[in-house]
Amino acid sequence: MTNTDWPLWEVFVRSRRGLSHTHAGSLHAPDAEFALRNARDLYTRRGEGVSIWVVPSSAITASSPDEKDPFFEPSADKPYRHPTFYEIPEGVKHL
């Protein structure tokens, strides 16, 4: 990082109450306060959000594509986790 190069931040926006924050994009800022303000100006200037999180990109730990199989495939063969796995006689309500 040169002395004029600001770090990268990831921006998460809650579009309205009741919904989770979702990743909106990233931006550069010298510090957290400016990251928050820049995010407000950039990602909510058309009223797209009611709350914002900013996280330094370097603070994110991500699963690597190499881990893809061991990480995500085991869950694919557990259909009993999903409600459609179960057969319920017709006419049974509220289930």
Binding site: L27, H28, A29, R37, N38, D41, L42, R45
Partner: peptide, 11 residues
Amino acid sequence: PVLEEEVALAN
């Protein structure tokens, strides 16, 4: 001075 500030000043 920086793109983010273009957006802020315009706001």
